[in-house]
Amino acid sequence: MIPINPPFDLLPALLPGVGITLQLTIFSSLLAFMLAFIVGFGRLSKYKSIQVVSTIYVEFFRGTSLLVQLFWAYFVLPHFGLELTAMQAGVIVLGLNYGAYASEVVRSSILAVPKSQTEAGIALNMTSTQIMYRVILPQAFLTMLPPFGNLLIELLKGTALVSLITLSDLMFMGAQLRITTLRTTEVFCLVLIIYFIIAYPLILGVRGLESKFSKGRA
């Protein structure tokens, strides 16, 4: 029942899917990273309108299910004349969804920097931009790293959902391969292990970064 020999003959059929999964992870995490800072700053903005818009964005994308958002982008948007390929829909929705979570990380990390740091900046006659970029952000960034790492792993796991909007990622290839070969146990074990192999270096990388950045600091 449990394969004694590793089913390496199944690997070539799965590898193209790994490529798609990695592409999706990279593009959507870049989008999410940018959005996180834009929206995170937006929520701390002194303009009420920017605050409201970014809060609505965050609550909307955190409040609805990722899969529902994917379906909406892929099946409903074309009715409004916006035709997206599965890849575009995947990157945009994953980016928007995890961007909303990550913006909360940015916001709370900036707020977690002690107020005395801002006051010290003012005392040194720094401009508010200088205070943000030279004093607040370098400290807040350290706080952001571990949750960002966790979100990156969540995003990688989230990419499996695009298989349900017909994008041929690793999960999709696995499900297809099960139908064609009927070697269910081997295929799904392999898929799980490949996901773990992709995720594990990320976990280790995040831990490494964390200890590197926290060196020489309290």
Partner: peptide
């Protein structure tokens, strides 16, 4: 815990739904 947390829920669901009946 580490393994389950770093693999997609969807893959686990497929595993439970399609592999367990074989056992």
């Amino acid at each position: 815990v580490e393994f389950v947390r770093s693999t997609p829920l969807l893959a686990q669901l497929y595993f439970i739904f399609y592999v367990l009946p074989q056992c």
